[in-house]
């Protein structure tokens, strides 16, 4: 073997090693969290709120966090869809090139803004309005966080729709709006759903943005102005307590969170493969 071959073998070895390590770490994370948390998933863990006092109580479960997280994530996903979908449509057809690239750039920058900054900004606005931490505040801040993700993901899939399809629609006399709604959106539907799921996954897992804005409580929120617990913050707060019984709830919350994330990812994969069958290529 000459030097070149040695170098080739050496770097190929390194590449395989680093790939194996990265994949290995993923499995290590899944394994540790699942092994630690799965045995704790009892019925009472899933169906009861914590018993006895402010999150240091020993009995009960994490129903407050499960419900809170679902409220927050579904609310925010719904709101950001209402905003993101029109923007994505607008970018396809109406926006002139310069304006479109400005909007895309600004959304890309928003995507990179740390979620703690969203949280701090959101809470500042809430203080200004005289609101305290509540479900509504959490939903709104999460909406802002999800908005760039959802919009840019939808934008990308809609951009993939061949221009000929739109032209076909114009050719039979439809307006731009009709072409977008009936042809482009339908063609890009699997991608749009994937974008929604992607944003949902990000939203339900984010803690820093709702830390101040949604707060934390042992109770299930009854109105938009009640504070709401959430799974990621349950992991964070409960892990910080010195009581092993309370820490167990953190592990359980992590497992539930992981299961939700994994299933959205699996669902979006299934959707994509199943639905693309009906899409014209």
């Amino acid at each position: 073997m000459d030097r070149r071959q040695l170098e080739e073998a050496f770097f190929k070895g390194l590449m395989i090693a680093s790939t194996v390590i990265i994949v290995g770490i993923l499995f290590a994370i899944l394994a540790v969290v699942l092994l630690k948390g799965a045995p704790l998933l009892s019925l009472s863990m899933l169906t009861q709120t914590p018993k006895g006092g402010y999150y240091l109580g020993k009995g009960g479960g994490i129903l407050n966090a499960i419900i809170g997280s679902l409220y927050l994530a579904f609310g925010a996903t719904f709101l950001s869809f209402i905003i993101a979908f029109p923007i994505a449509l607008y970018l396809q057809e109406y926006a002139r090139n310069r304006f479109a690239s400005f909007v895309r750039l600004s959304l890309d920058i928003l995507w990179g803004v740390p979620s703690i900054v969203y949280g701090a900004f959101g809470f500042t606005i809430m203080l200004y309005l005289g609101l305290r931490a509540c479900l509504l505040g959490g939903i709104i801040v999460l909406t802002l966080l999800m908005l760039p993700i959802m919009t840019r993901a939808m934008d990308e899939v809609m951009r993939m729709v061949p221009h000929e399809l739109r032209e076909t629609s114009y050719a039979v006399g439809s307006t731009r709006l009709e072409a977008l709604l009936r042809v482009v959106s339908r063609q890009a539907l699997p991608g749009i759903l994937t974008a929604v799921l992607l944003a949902f996954g990000r939203g339900i897992g984010d803690a820093a943005s709702i830390l101040f804005t949604a707060g934390y409580t042992d109770h299930i929120p009854h109105s938009l102005f009640d504070p709401a617990a959430s799974l990621p913050l349950a992991v964070f707060f409960l892990l910080g307590t010195p009581l092993p019984e309370v820490q167990e709830r953190a592990y359980a919350a992590a497992v539930i969170l992981l299961v939700i994330i994994l299933s959205t990812s699996v669902i979006s994969r299934l959707l994509t493969t199943k639905w693309t069958k009906f899409v014209i290529k």
Binding site: I29, V33, G201, R202, I204, G205, D206, A207, A208, P232, L233, V235, F236, L239, A250, Y251, A254, L257, L258, I261, L262, T264, S265
Partner: peptide, 9 residues
């Protein structure tokens, strides 16, 4: 997709 608190955990 794994949430950051899970990484922290």
């Amino acid at each position: 997709g794994i949430p950051s608190v899970v990484y922290g955990l």
